[in-house]
């Protein structure tokens, strides 16, 4: 495989993506609200946020895995210049698995329990690369070896339940990269794993991005994982990107009170132990509709009346590629409630 570097068009462009779930007899739920980001080849972009912020739904929309009914998708998703929304189903099936691949959080439910792992990989190889029989088996062995599974020939015939959690996640990564995708989406790939196994899997993903030039969309709630892996980070809250910046800029100079709140509320291995944590008050259920103002306002320390005067606009910090969506960012005097 050749190493691709910095092509003119980004591998993935998401522009003003909105996803609304409609249900008869109930008010529609907007899960994703005008989200935009780009990923270039060999780049790792993180989507960070807590449960219900819309990060997984965004991934499913990119993969074309959302149902047709009861879902309204607006905006634009383009893969290397090809518009994915509205693409004929057959074309999408050709792309999915070959050019776009996804790793799920829980490998046990993502893998088919009654099919040997090897067959699940060769299925991909025959569908997209036309490999059959021994050729496909040989390629699958090579892929399993590539993701660090010892004794891959034997593992080929085993079922998912015979493998440990870390092995299963490796097998799923092997499936995802089997056809050399240019875009890989990893949805909480290490959340179900132990820390020592998590470190192994993250190292593997990092290595794949570096050697193959794959674009990686990393979805996680763990800011530690983001700090070690992502080039650029998008922080989501209630379906919107509230802050986006390159990694060093975001962690060095976080602006949005939600980002700073998240960072201050995590106990850190290298932090001061005696100091109590600074939690964000309330929970994600305390919400204001984005149309009426900032959704984070009910939980925010810097909340002011102007926070509820319509959707907060995006502010760009000059020269550092850093944008946020806060009406009253730190630096301006805070009103204490």
């Amino acid at each position: 495989m050749t190493v691709r570097r910095e092509p003119a068009t980004p591998v993935l462009t998401v522009e003003d993506l909105s996803i609304t779930f409609t249900q008869r007899g109930a008010a529609p739920t907007r899960a994703v609200d005008r989200v935009s980001f780009e990923i270039g080849a060999g780049e790792v972009v993180g989507l960070v946020g807590e449960s219900g912020c819309g990060k997984s739904v965004t991934a499913l929309a990119v993969m074309g895995l959302l149902a047709d009914r009861n879902v309204e998708i607006g905006g634009r998703i383009a893969y290397a210049g090809t518009e994915l929304l509205g693409l004929p189903r057959k074309r999408m099936r050709d792309l999915r698995g070959a050019d776009l691949a996804m790793i799920f959080q829980d490998p046990l439910s993502a893998l088919n329990p009654v099919v040997p792992v090897g067959r699940q990989i060769t299925e991909m190889l025959s569908r997209h690369r036309g490999l059959r029989g021994r050729d496909a088996d040989a390629e699958a062995v090579q892929l399993l070896g590539r993701v660090g599974i010892p004794d891959p020939e034997r593992r080929l015939k085993e079922y998912p339940h015979q493998m440990s959690g870390g092995m299963r996640q490796r097998a799923m990564i092997a499936m995802a990269v089997s056809c050399g995708p240019r875009l890989l989406i990893a949805d909480e790939p290490t959340t179900a794993l132990d820390v020592t196994i998590q470190a192994q899997v993250l190292e593997l993903l990092k290595d794949l991005v570096e050697t193959e030039g794959t674009a990686l969309l990393m979805i996680t709630h763990d800011l530690g994982v983001v700090a070690g892996l992502c080039d650029r980070v998008n922080v989501l809250y209630a379906g919107r990107v509230v802050e986006a910046a390159p990694r060093h800029e975001l962690f060095g100079n976080p602006v949005h009170p939600y980002t700073t709140g998240l960072l201050r509320s995590i106990p850190r291995m290298d932090g001061d132990r005696g100091v109590p944590l600074n939690p964000i008050r309330g929970s994600v259920n305390d919400l204001v509709a984005w149309a009426d103002g900032c959704a984070f306002a009910p939980r925010c320390d810097r909340y002011e009346l102007e926070c509820l005067a319509g959707t907060p606009a995006v502010t760009e910090l000059p020269g550092v590629d850093h944008e946020h969506r806060c009406v009253n960012p730190p630096g301006t005097p805070a009103v204490v409630r």
Partner: peptide, 15 residues
């Protein structure tokens, strides 16, 4: 030692 070194710290400089 291994366990502690495996835990990601939310700070890219430290990482």
């Amino acid at each position: 030692k291994a366990l502690m070194s495996a835990i990601p710290v939310p700070d890219p400089e430290v990482e």
